[in-house]
Write a protein that binds this DNA or RNA. Structure first.
Lengths: 184, 184
DNA sequence: GTCTATAATCCGATAGAC
DNA sequence: GTCTATCGGATTATAGAC
């Protein structure tokens, strides 16, 4: 056989692309920028990701995996259903407060490509649906009803497009909703 | 004699551009598409709007004017401060429910052009700040405090990136916040 | 309608492991 | 020497601008 492939090339490219896509938006970032940031040639990029849509899909999938890992970590310890719900809400609030936060990657993609039905759009939509379903399960598990789940989702949604100062307000509020002050 | 300029040309172009920009996003729509939709020549477009940023700025300004007109209409009759607040919230919920709604034009622009500081971005940011200040005044006027204003803004924010089914939940909830069930 | 820049994509050339 | 990962320029379409 011939030359051996450099290890981790795909990851290097994907990581570079993910950073750019999130910071500047998928549409605003050209393949040339990705090539430059990854420090590779164009051919190599197209070998691993045949089209920009493929690269965007991989970016969203990577982002989803990272979030799932973070959420799993946060839900690892608490066993009390209300604690679990609040752990997730607090994690979201922390994310939103982090420097460099530029909104939810999935909502951003759908805003950049409205009405799109390609693979990245499907990935974004299914992430949002699954994320909401998980939140619903946590709310129901904590003794809440459908209405409470709808309300909490509304606040979480608002958090994603708000300012960092909204985060503590949201956490405190949701805490109050699931643990009323006048209860044991 | 030279030909006299057709009246309302600027408006025709701007209306066509606004529809496209809102539906597909500013980045996704090319000047050629605007020309085609407006049914004018390219030179005429560039005579009225020297650059795409100018056209985008005009689009956002037009959108702002339309919203201000709608909001003024809705706030025309109610004199009771709580009624006024709820009138605005209901109007927003109705907007979000309307077919063809694709999110808030100003938030969408800022998502499409993150970190931008050009005129359209400034228009979008100042609209959002003014809109929030107006909401704050209505909440304070209705006897609410800063915390309530923060919460209502969070819900309104969430409404803008949610589904039509969130609208009645939000209206009912905010109504409950400003008119508690156990009060006169 | 034309012009130029830049987008996405493709291909001939290079180079390194067997 | 061969075979293939990789690179940088070539190609084509479309953008914004005049």
């Amino acid at each position: 056989m011939a030359r051996t492939a450099a290890p981790g090339t795909r990851d290097t490219i994907l990581t570079a692309a993910a950073g750019l896509f999130y910071e500047f938006g998928v549409r605003a970032v050209g393949m040339a920028q990705v090539v430059e940031a990854a420090g590779c040639g164009k051919n190599l990029l197209y070998k691993h990701f045949p089209s920009k849509a493929d690269l965007a899909a991989a970016y969203l999938t990577l982002t989803r995996r990272e979030r799932e890992r973070t959420v799993a970590e946060v839900l690892r310890w608490p066993t009390d259903p209300t604690d679990r719900l609040l752990a997730l809400v607090t994690e979201i609030a922390d994310t939103v407060r982090r420097p460099g936060y530029r909104g939810c990657a999935f909502r951003n993609y759908l805003t950049e490509f409205p009405g799109e039905t390609d693979e990245p759009a499907r990935i974004a939509q299914s992430y949002l649906a699954d994320s909401r379903a998980q939140m619903d399960r946590l709310v129901i598990g904590a003794g809440g009803d459908e209405l409470l789940a709808d309300r909490i989702w509304l606040v979480v949604n608002g958090l994603h497009s708000g300012t960092p100062t909204d985060a503590p307000v949201a956490v405190h509020w949701i805490t109050e909703m699931v643990r009323p002050p006048g209860a044991p």
